[in-house]
Amino acid sequence: MNENRKYPFSEIDPDICKGCGLCVASCPKGVLVISDKLNSKGFHFSEYVGEGCIGCGNCFYTCPEPSAVTVYLRNYVPEEVS
């Protein structure tokens, strides 16, 4: 994770993602895209373009894969993880 990144942002695990595209369709800001790259399972995974996330959580709640999407919200403090 890039420490200088601004919250909120969405992080998608490229290897867990199955590329169904529900998050891309649900994103109100259009900041998620299906990658041209393939992951280790042969899926074109979804990825965050790097800016514009408003932390609405749509991608998290619409994603059918429990651990594929993590959304760090506006009030997130990195220390909490440890």
Binding site: I16, C20, Y61, P64, P66
Partner: peptide
């Protein structure tokens, strides 16, 4: 061991997540 057996886009995973 890190992902479900559900097909891409399956509704089960969404409901599972809401329950969990």
């Amino acid at each position: 061991k890190d992902r479900t057996h559900y097909c891409p886009g399956c509704g089960h995973g969404i409901l599972h997540k809401l329950i969990a």
